[in-house]
Amino acid sequence: MFFSSKLSKAVFSGLAGTLALAGATTIQAQEISRAQVIATTCYTCHGTYGVSPGSIPSINDISAERMESILQGYRSGQRVSTVMGRHASGYTDEEVKEVAQYFGNVQKRGK
């Protein structure tokens, strides 16, 4: 989960406490979202959290609206690319929107 480290510590120590004390019936279900797992596949080339260490552009500082528009541009072919068109066409409108929102939220939280 990509909260700030302070927040994530609080969330997860809370979760650990719940697990230890109460057992299965009261576990706070924390499903990992589809947007998050799709986003992690971007990180292989673009670096973890989208912060690129090399010549491939960073994608960590793009608003949700702009990210969605860029990805849709790659899907339609309107936006010229080497490889992104071949990737973006593998996702549905809904997935593109969700992933764009996910990146937008990561940006707002400061990772």
């Binding site: 299965a24 576990i27 279900a29 924390q30 499903e31 990992i32 979202s33 589809r34 998050q36 797992v37 799709i38 992690t40 596949t41 292989t44 080339c45 490889v83 990737h87 593998g90």
Partner: peptide, 25 residues
């Protein structure tokens, strides 16, 4: 590895593992 990590964490939490999505380049 990432999809497996997500699945393992989900299984420990007792929630459904997210549907995987893979890329190769």
């Amino acid at each position: 590895a990432k999809m497996t990590a997500a699945a393992i964490v989900s299984l420990f939490r007792g929630v459904k593992p997210p549907l995987p999505s893979h890329v190769n380049t």
